[in-house]
Write a protein that binds this DNA or RNA. Structure first.
Lengths: 159, 159
DNA sequence: TCTTATTTGATAGTTCTTTTCATTTAGTTT
DNA sequence: AAACTAAATGAAAAGAACTATCAAATAAGA
């Protein structure tokens, strides 16, 4: 944890930004909730527990800054809010997501399944890939028994 | 064109909706701009040219309706607006997108590259896939010469 | 035709996010 | 250490995208 905070501190100062107490509190919340896909509001509420004087605007600014420095990733699961997730350490680009159309839960696929496809796309479409987003929408293992007809869920909950 | 409008008319009436003049104008705009990934605002402005009396709320409602009936797909490229695209005829789920981080253009990959990966995911994660979203972010063929270091574009323009 | 339900347009309201601006904080220079 | 300069912050206003409300218009059914 301390190591990671320190690493981010260095990334910030490399770009002439400081790790202010507000930024540090935000970073710690993000690290502590690495798996959670927090919205800005979520982060704000969690940071407030540690540092009640922080303002929402600062949280937004910090998230934007960390995103610009590729410390975190912005995600959009189509529910109207931007969510944020730590970039996996050393990962070239981020992992994939499984969104359950029934319960809304978001699970992770940590392995990169796209490498062969990317090679094909770069070749075939003359497109130089920097990053990707891959999301599967469906029914998670926990909801399998509950859902009668998965096709009926198309268009539900997530865009 | 007429054939497709008619087909949609039937899909609507199958669910007890009418193809009103406003809905028809909206549908026609969507068909005419099939490749364009229009936002609601875009659609509104285009429909206004044909039917100036239409209101923005009606456009939103129509897009929502068509989306519910899976006539069109909602897309989210992370620029803050929902975009709409016709569902390819007979396609099980929609195609993939190439987003250029330099010029913002969105190109299409019409072939489905994910079938083998989906089989693996369904098996390995016990997740029943209904649909997917796959987007590659990078530099399009048109911008290749202009962009010196593509990595620098990470975090730019699109979330 | 009369009745009933659907659809619409205008507008007000929400929600999420960004901007503004005065104040605070931190780093630099003397 | 005091004065100066720049960066960062919090509060609140503003903005953008979308949704809900409601009276009027349209269409369908009795």
């Amino acid at each position: 944890m301390e190591k990671r905070v320190n690493q981010i501190k260095q990334q910030l100062s490399a770009h002439n930004y400081k790790l202010t107490p507000q930024r540090e509190a935000t970073v710690r919340v993000l690290i502590e909730n690495e798996e959670a896909h927090l919205s800005a509001e979520d982060v704000y509420l969690l940071v407030k527990e540690k540092a009640p004087e922080i303002g929402l605007a600062t949280v937004y600014r910090t998230l934007e800054l960390l995103s610009d420095l590729s410390v975190i990733h912005k995600l959009n699961f189509g529910d109207g809010v931007t969510r944020y997730e730590f970039r996996a350490e050393g990962a070239e680009h981020h992992h994939h997501h499984l969104i359950c159309l029934n319960c809304g839960e978001v699970d992770e696929i940590m392995e990169d399944l796209l490498t062969p496809i990317e090679a094909k796309v770069e070749e075939e479409y003359q497109f130089q890939i920097v990053d990707h987003r891959l999301t599967f929408h469906g029914v998670c293992r926990r909801c399998k028994e509950v859902v009668a007809d998965p096709k009926k869920l198309v268009g539900a909950r997530v865009t």
